[in-house]
Design a protein around this nucleic acid. Sequence first.
DNA 1: CTGTATCCTATATGATACTG
DNA 2: CAGTATCATATAGGATACAG
Lengths: 116, 116
Amino acid sequence: MIKMTIAKNREVKADEYADLRKALTMIAGKWKLEILWLLYHRTHRFGELLRTIPGVTQHMLTRQLRELEADGLVTRKVFAEVPPRVEYSMTEATKALEPTIKSLMEWWQKFGKAES
Amino acid sequence: MIKMTIAKNREVKADEYADLRKALTMIAGKWKLEILWLLYHRTHRFGELLRTIPGVTQHMLTRQLRELEADGLVTRKVFAEVPPRVEYSMTEATKALEPTIKSLMEWWQKFGKAES
DNA sequence: CTGTATCCTATATGATACTG
DNA sequence: CAGTATCATATAGGATACAG
C-alpha cells in the first residue's frame, strides 16, 4: 500500500483532509447536533424528537436521522406494533465524539464569540 | 439578561447549538482545513496556496480565505509593491483550534473509518 | 405514529474570462 | 500577482400533501 510516487506526501494529506471534512459534515447538518444532544441523555422516539426540537419538520428530521444512522451516529430500532414505534439512540461512536464537541465548545467560548 | 420565560432552557440550548453549528461551518468549507494546515506550518502567499492546494481555483481560494479572515481564522497582510504581494497567516484562534482538530482526527481513526 | 413523494428555494461550489 | 465579474451546477434545506 506504499505509493512510491513523487506526489506521495500530497496524496496522503489530501486523504486526511477528505477524512476530516467527512467527519465535520457528518455532524454539521442543521439539526444533527441537537439530535445528538438529546440522545446523549436518553433514547428518544421519533415523535419526541419532532416535538422537542423547535422548528424541525418531519421531512428534515427523517433525513437528518437517516444520515446520522448511515454514518453510525445513531441506532434506529423499529418495534412491530400498531401504532408503529421507532426509537433512536446513540452509539459508541456518538459517545466517543463528546469530548471533541466539548473541545469545540470551549474553543468557541474563548475565540469564536469575539469574531463576526 | 435573565429570561424569565417558561421556554428559557430551550432558548439557551438553541443558542448553544447555533454557536456550535457556526463553529463547525467556520472550518467545514471545502478547502479551509487544507488552508489552515498549510498556515500552521508557516505564512503563505496567495500564489503559494493556489499552487500547493490541488484542485482549488483562484475564485474559490479567494472566497475561502475571505471567509476565514472574516471569522478571525487567518490574517491577511497586503504589501504595497509591484507586483502585489499578499501574505496569509494563522491567528491565535487558529492555534487554539489545533487540539480540537486533532481530537476529531483521533475520533475518526477509531470510529469514522468503520462506517459508510 | 412514522414516515415518503414532490416540488421549490437558498447556499456552496465551480468554470471561465477579465483587471489594477 | 492577486484578485473580481459573470454565469452555471451541485447540494442542503424546506413546504406541503399523501401513505402504511
